[in-house]
Design a protein around this nucleic acid. Structure first.
Lengths: 260, 260
DNA sequence: GCAGCTTATTGCCTCAGGGGCAATTGCATG
DNA sequence: CATGCAATTGCCCCTGAGGCAATAAGCTGC
């Protein structure tokens, strides 16, 4: 099996355009053809034809009653195919449970991505009614504990564009972010205090694969009144332990999986 | 808001091709460019460029170590965006729980699609170790209880192509299928006995929306030794009740949602 | 280590097919 | 009833997508 020529391809414009449509639809709302055309600056006739093509593949669906389009069922299937291969989840699950047991807060497992980390599993705190985690949800790099861990330990450079502000405490300055990432690196874990969402605090630890590269990120998050600095400090120990335990689990699994 | 011209569009070929690639990748395996090219009868250079385009959008990812491609994280996000809008799930959840409580078997909730139904939620039987349900999994129309309900009560015509055989009991004859569907219609629910999978039995009921159209399908399934004909007969009552309860729930919700 | 296989990617050329415009149809609104 | 906006489609032109062949990079067996 040959390898390793880095793809620096000519892209297929119509496919790129189709993906742009999905960007618009990704927030869960329904949109009309013209609405999408306006938001993407693609000609409405083109949008109409692209949507029809995507609809034929089940990627989007046409809602007859409104004449608008939304994401289709096929995406459920595809999304789940992705989930199925993440055996990482199976390994990590008991540790997430242990974490919730120990901290009484919501525990999350995320995978580092290109620009943000993606939640692939979580266990809700028994005390939280409202869901604050969701599979597939992106963790913004500069404003979440998970994201900071990704920046600190993943092999990626810091974001260069504008840093979106979510609350008054969000780090929006590149210098400050670099310093914070350095702190995370030294301290070994990431932390946010109301930077992504008012009153939401979190800490997150890296999970390493057998090559000592960032494989995943585990985090604990909770509402400020309950999960304040004291509770966070108490949670650091258990979280670090469980993160390490998952790393060890990955090691075994990897070794088993190596077949050559 | 204008409406209702039925799209009978010219499709965009490159996008269709891109979707074909996803078909191949959908089973969860990794594939190389040439491998995919062979399976889809698309030229390898085209496949290479399409994959690069999809990879740029996060729909697939390039695994550097093997040089192959697999489905990407973005699909998690998109799949979950679909799930988020299915408030049907929230309505149905307690009823699924009640069903598991009553029958001790796995309960599923599915949405009728074009050619098959899609599982959108389920609760595992406490007695089953092995998972026999999964979100996003398609229920074949002619070989599952859920699928039969879809054929019987959805506004779609029976499949015309070859009926794939999964076990010795799978209905593969169109006449026989028509008769079975008619029986489902009269009896009010669907049933399969080892037709989709050896030793797996199931029954399924329709859920109606306020327009008396098929909105969803609830089912109960279990292994033959435990969930035999007697157990199935016992399960019919509770299943029918819960299905009706969900239909009522939908009614309320719809009425609340109507804003014009 | 070399010869010969396979695989992935890219340059180049050509022409099919995709994009844009404008016309058409269908609703909605005043 | 007139006007306006949305969605789709016919048509034409030209771009950009696809195919071929060349190239690069492994991997396999000897």
């Amino acid at each position: 099996m040959p390898r390793t020529r880095q793809p620096a391809h000519r892209h297929v414009a119509s496919v790129t355009r189709a993906l742009t449509l999905l960007d618009v639809l990704a927030d869960g709302q329904e949109f009309g053809t013209n609405e999408i055309a306006r938001r993407t600056a693609i000609n409405a006739s083109t949008v109409s034809r692209l949507l029809a093509t995507l609809a034929a593949g089940g990627i989007v669906e046409h809602v007859p009653s409104t004449g608008r389009y939304r994401l289709g069922m096929r995406l459920l299937q595809l999304g789940n195919a992705v989930l199925e291969r993440l055996d990482l989840r199976d390994i990590a699950r008991p540790h997430l449970e242990a974490l919730v047991e120990a901290t009484d807060e919501t525990a999350t497992l995320s995978l580092p991505g290109e620009r943000f980390a993606v939640t692939i599993d979580f266990i809700q705190s028994p005390s939280s009614v409202q869901s604050i985690a969701r599979v597939g949800r992106p963790s913004v790099a500069h404003a979440t504990a998970t994201g900071k861990v990704m920046l600190a330990f993943g092999e990626i450079e810091l974001p260069t564009g504008r840093l979106e502000s979510f609350t008054a405490r969000t780090i929006t300055d590149h210098q400050a972010l670099a310093a914070e990432v350095e702190r995370v690196r030294r301290r070994g874990f990431g932390q946010t205090i109301g930077e992504r969402e008012e009153g939401l605090n979190a800490i997150a630890f890296p999970v390493w694969d057998d090559q000592a590269r960032l494989a995943a990120i585990v985090g604990v998050q909770g509402p400020a009144p309950r999960f304040g600095s004291k509770a966070m400090r108490r949670a650091v120990g258990p979280l670090g332990e469980q993160a390490a335990a998952i790393s060890r689990g990955l090691g075994w699994r990897r070794n088993e999986a190596v077949d050559r």
